[in-house]
Nucleic acid binder design. Structure first.
Lengths: 349, 349
DNA sequence: GTGAAAGCGCTAACAG
DNA sequence: CTGTTAGCGCTTTCAC
């Protein structure tokens, strides 16, 4: 194992001071004679010099890395967000530390602390805990936080919101337009604001259309710990659909809305297992528009949440903040978009 | 923004030296009187002390983070690998920097350099370039590398291999058993060793069974730059399937094998677009067993490549190396497993 | 059991 | 233009 080369090694070799070497190798605009400059660059090349950023960081207090905390990268929604984040980060020379909170509050907190210990100056967070005590403290210490996906009630946290309420409403209205009145609603636990908002938006639209709430058609998963092996949502969809299928034929929904695409896949799968065809026997609608929703057959009708764009936007807003250290920008609200495909069919009563 | 607290601040407050504070707060086993110990811990708590790992790192040369370079996190196969890696890392107090090489050699190299500059001591790499020059240099400088998925021909790189050849063979044999003889082969460019091995394994099995190679049935994607928007594989499957469908009816394959599940989804989708049902009209088989393969209908018959396990194993092997600094362990070869579902049907000539 | 001091690799006043 | 020097926050000899 060859010894690590430092600027001092190069300085000695070139008979200059390490300050000069630093000035050349860190692309400072400080004046250095062309002769020395090339000599040093050449030497650095020859000696396979690799700068030690830890030294630089300690001095400059800027480590060019941000943190991302999401529930699970195995959820393709967050994978797309992550890709957007990383892309924006790379373009600015930043790197990103990925943390999967796995829906575990203490893990989330632990990661937050570790990131700050590592002197990360910015974090993109899809919080499951909404732990404002810790977060407020970290903000006071200069951490910049962008909240995506889940709203955080802190004044200094920039929000990339998404209009879940309108998304839910949009879904309901589409199903109504297609003639559906007995609509099943299948959702993971309503513990996250996002899920609650979809829920309220959805039923507000139904109510506005004079469709009364039928509790038997609303299936909410229990609050048991979500084991995030990545297949949870799918199984959830299957399980809750089984419960809907226990209804008498006349009571059964003509369409089922699921709180996200993965859950919708579970719904469709369970229906197929019971010999029911989508959309001929029953219509299904999802939420998110993950890539796979268009790969399924039938291709899934869903509400688009711009995941990749959300990641890109979150990251560039964060980097802006880090660079200018201003807290003046305002948050943004991304809007849903209806994606009509083939899993919903007109219902003719 | 409150001032950052350092051990010196605490030392001053407690009327002790910073050395003592360090000994207490870094959980050193160095003897410190119980009285001072509790006093210091209490003070650190009160003052909201957060250690600065950069300072520690500069001294100890160990930053508790590893790097991961994969083609794209939007590919669910790598997302699962990543989840496994992160899980193993977390259990040992490590964090992970995620880098998407997007099938771009220069990006891959850039990341490798940046990681080393950041003093990362270990990297898990699914290389697309196989750039051994740079890698060899970094290894000499003490970097530890675990290669997953793609083989790297360097003695000091530990390999987590997967028997792609046998996987290809396994797929072919299954299709043969099911009575298929005219089998289409759809693959992304054969530029990565993994794809080549699946290919050779597959056709070795066909040959062994006396099935002659029909070049018209083999569709290899051109070597054009793969735009990694995550949907590439899917579109590729669609495009290549269209080409297969241009064959005269009698020449058409009775089954199609795709080099990975995403491509298989494209194949199925394109077949559906052409009014062909899977598996009734034509059978389709994938490779990888990503989670969605079981969510599709028909559920995809495929060859399992243990992705999550691969990530976990890679990470724990890497951490073993970092801790013991030994290069003695041997690599491992993970074996494929046939996953029979509903997308392949027996062919009765 | 505790403290003083050196130093990890780098940058940035300041001086020349 | 170039060099000297003083740290960034922490650990770790070496004294006491």
């Amino acid at each position: 194992m060859t010894k690590r080369i430092t600027i001092h090694d190069i300085a000695r070799e070139a008979n200059v001071s390490s300050a000069t070497v630093s000035r050349v190798l860190s692309n400072s605009d400080y004046p250095v004679s062309a002769k020395l400059r090339t000599r040093i660059q050449q030497l650095a090349e020859e000696m396979n010099y690799i700068p030690n950023m830890i030294g630089k960081q300690l001095k400059t207090d800027n480590n060019m890395t941000i943190g991302v905390i999401i529930p699970s990268i195995s959820n393709p929604f967050y994978a797309a967000v992550m890709l957007g984040i990383e892309e924006a980060a790379r373009k600015s020379g930043y790197q990103v530390l990925l943390c999967n909170s796995l829906q575990d509050k203490s893990l989330e907190e632990g990661y937050l602390k570790t990131l700050v210990e590592k002197q990360v100056k910015g974090v993109i967070l899809s919080s499951i805990s909404g732990n404002c005590k810790l977060l407020a403290q970290l903000l006071r210490m200069g951490l910049h936080v962008i909240a995506i996906d889940q709203k955080l009630d802190l004044p200094d946290v920039l929000q990339i919101e998404f209009d879940y309420w309108r998304g839910g409403q949009m879904a309901a209205n589409y199903l109504l337009e297609q003639g559906h009145r007995r609509i099943g609603y299948v959702t993971a636990p309503l513990d996250r604001p996002s899920r609650q908002q979809i829920y309220t938006g959805f039923f507000a639209a139904l109510q506005a259309a004079g469709v009364e709430l039928n509790e038997a058609l609303v299936q909410v998963a229990g609050d048991e710990k979500e084991v995030y092996d990545g297949i949870y949502e799918f199984e959830n969809g299957k399980r809750l659909t089984r419960q809907l299928l226990e209804l008498e034929a006349a009571e059964r929904p003509t369409a089922i809305f699921a709180c996200n695409d993965l859950t919708a896949f579970g719904v469709i799968n369970e229906l197929a297992d019971n010999g029911l065809n989508v959309p001929d026997d029953i219509s299904v609608m999802g939420f998110d528009n993950i890539e796979f929703s268009r790969m399924m057959s039938p291709a899934l009708t869903t509400v688009k949440q711009p995941n990749y764009e959300m990641g890109k936007l979150a990251c560039s807003m964060l980097l802006d903040r880090l660079r200018q250290d201003n807290n003046y920008e305002t948050g943004v609200m991304l809007l849903p978009q209806l994606v009509v495909r083939n899993s919903v069919k007109q219902y003719l009563a």
